[in-house]
Design a protein around this nucleic acid. Sequence first.
DNA 1: TAGTTTTACTTTGTTTTTCAAAGTACTTTA
DNA 2: TAAAGTACTTTGAAAAACAAAGTAAAACTA
Lengths: 105, 105
Amino acid sequence: MKNIISNINKAFDHRIRLGIMSVLMVNDHADFKTLKELLGATDGNVASHTKALEKQNYIKVEKSFIDRKPNTKYIATTTGRKAFQEHLAALEKLLNPENGLKTKS
Amino acid sequence: MKNIISNINKAFDHRIRLGIMSVLMVNDHADFKTLKELLGATDGNVASHTKALEKQNYIKVEKSFIDRKPNTKYIATTTGRKAFQEHLAALEKLLNPENGLKTKS
DNA sequence: TAGTTTTACTTTGTTTTTCAAAGTACTTTA
DNA sequence: TAAAGTACTTTGAAAAACAAAGTAAAACTA
């Protein structure tokens, strides 16, 4: 490890994306509206952050019609779950005071 | 709490700022060069992220000369320490799977 | 059944943030 | 005293974030 933040994943460096992943880790899927409400985000915000995670292959999208209305369902991919867990491990390591951050005694 | 990310502090939403605060939580101070090396960041990057934290009154800066060379020392303020600890609490709460993120049984 | 509102998103363009290269002001070394 | 190094700061381009506006179909309303 070259530096103390090298294992922190840039893709999860934003609270909305962190929130999306957290939701998708405990639920096998969540739809657009659910994410929007849980995160208190605007439509455009949910759209762009989910798109960013999709681009990285961390989540996938399934579009269908439920009750004749369009429904967009987001699901964390295996890659995404793995990446997120590694991110959490990196966070824990960084934030744990007993981890060599002290520069002098 | 209106939504699951409302207690996550936007000011710490970036890995470099997270790293700076982590370092300043365990060390009573750190200078420019130390932060730069620990974080593996560029000069401009350290400058702008410390400035952002300074603007929020989360860290303060002390400038002096050591061995006739300019030295910039960063110190976490009481406000900053408090804000960071609250941020960590919010993160833990969000990331703990047993915290009401499940939308259905 | 024509018009209005709502739902479920997507697109757009502005604003904000991030970033590293270049700049500054010294000090040190040759 | 010229060149190189140190310790930052400034700058401006590039990328990201954001919410307002747009779209399209459904549902309600008169």
